Deep mutational scan, measured.
Amino acid sequence: MDETGKELVLALYDYQEKSPREVTMKKGDILTLLNSTNKDWWKVEVKITVNGKTYERQGAVPAAYVKKL
């Protein structure tokens, strides 16, 4: 869990989004888990830093590609 009490997951593999509802992640990324009720796809929040600014993006990733921490 992070400092706000939200559950975290670890990306076990790289994943490139294939639709606007998904998010890209790299192996080793730590993501915030938002919903894991679907056994195949979990909704997560990814933090992306671009030019020193951090953005948050929500989307789905394959459940088999992440592990709860």
Rank of each mutant, 00 (worst) to 15 (best):
residue 24 T to F: 03
residue 32 T to R: 13
residue 1 M to Y: 12
residue 55 Y to C: 11
residue 18 K to I: 06
residue 23 V to T: 04
residue 69 L to G: 02
residue 22 E to N: 04
residue 41 W to P: 00
residue 51 N to L: 08
residue 59 G to E: 01
residue 48 I to A: 06
residue 69 L to V: 09
residue 67 K to G: 06
residue 36 S to D: 15
residue 55 Y to M: 11
residue 68 K to I: 14
residue 29 D to H: 04
residue 21 R to H: 14
residue 59 G to Q: 01
residue 47 K to C: 14
residue 2 D to H: 14
residue 45 E to A: 15
residue 12 L to V: 06
residue 3 E to D: 13
residue 30 I to T: 05
residue 12 L to H: 02
residue 3 E to R: 12
residue 11 A to N: 01
residue 49 T to V: 13
residue 18 K to Q: 13
residue 10 L to K: 07
residue 1 M to V: 12
residue 58 Q to N: 07
residue 16 Q to N: 12
residue 40 D to S: 10
residue 17 E to K: 12
residue 34 L to Y: 02
residue 47 K to E: 08
residue 38 N to F: 05
residue 18 K to M: 10
residue 29 D to F: 05
residue 54 T to K: 07
residue 15 Y to L: 02
residue 11 A to L: 04
residue 57 R to K: 13
residue 5 G to I: 11
residue 1 M to K: 12
residue 54 T to A: 07
residue 4 T to F: 12
residue 39 K to F: 07
residue 3 E to N: 14
residue 64 A to D: 12
residue 44 V to N: 00
residue 57 R to N: 03
residue 42 W to C: 05
residue 14 D to S: 07
residue 6 K to P: 14
residue 69 L to F: 08
residue 17 E to F: 08
residue 8 L to Q: 10
residue 10 L to A: 04
residue 28 G to D: 04
residue 21 R to A: 14
residue 33 L to N: 00
residue 28 G to M: 03
residue 18 K to R: 14
residue 35 N to A: 10
residue 42 W to R: 00
residue 42 W to E: 00
residue 19 S to F: 05
residue 35 N to H: 07
residue 40 D to W: 14
residue 62 P to W: 06
residue 61 V to F: 01
residue 47 K to V: 12
residue 44 V to S: 00
residue 25 M to W: 02
residue 11 A to W: 04
residue 63 A to F: 02
residue 63 A to Y: 03
residue 61 V to N: 02
residue 22 E to M: 05
residue 60 A to Q: 15
residue 54 T to F: 09
residue 9 V to N: 01
residue 14 D to Y: 04
residue 57 R to P: 02
residue 39 K to L: 09
residue 13 Y to S: 07
residue 46 V to E: 01
residue 51 N to M: 09
residue 24 T to R: 05
residue 29 D to E: 08
residue 65 Y to M: 14
residue 63 A to I: 03
residue 12 L to S: 02
residue 68 K to Q: 09
residue 7 E to T: 13
residue 3 E to G: 13
residue 64 A to F: 09
residue 44 V to P: 00
residue 47 K to S: 12
residue 7 E to M: 11
residue 36 S to K: 08
residue 7 E to D: 10
residue 66 V to W: 03
residue 16 Q to C: 13
residue 37 T to P: 03
residue 48 I to P: 00
residue 50 V to K: 10
residue 28 G to S: 02
residue 46 V to F: 06
residue 36 S to I: 07
residue 25 M to A: 00
residue 4 T to V: 12
residue 48 I to G: 04
residue 48 I to C: 13
residue 67 K to C: 15
residue 48 I to H: 08
residue 44 V to Y: 02
residue 63 A to E: 04
residue 41 W to F: 06
residue 58 Q to P: 03
residue 10 L to C: 12
residue 43 K to S: 12
residue 15 Y to S: 00
residue 14 D to V: 06
residue 21 R to Q: 14
residue 59 G to D: 00
residue 39 K to R: 10
residue 33 L to C: 04
residue 55 Y to R: 08
residue 53 K to E: 12
residue 31 L to I: 06
residue 44 V to H: 00
residue 11 A to R: 02
residue 64 A to E: 10
residue 31 L to R: 00
residue 41 W to D: 00
residue 35 N to R: 06
residue 22 E to L: 04
residue 17 E to Q: 12
residue 3 E to C: 15
residue 66 V to E: 02
residue 49 T to L: 10
residue 49 T to A: 07
residue 55 Y to K: 08
residue 63 A to V: 05
residue 20 P to N: 10
residue 15 Y to G: 02
residue 51 N to K: 08
residue 19 S to E: 06
residue 52 G to N: 07
residue 15 Y to D: 02
residue 36 S to P: 05
residue 11 A to E: 03
residue 57 R to A: 07
residue 12 L to Y: 03
residue 22 E to P: 04
residue 64 A to S: 14
residue 38 N to W: 05
residue 4 T to N: 12
residue 65 Y to P: 03
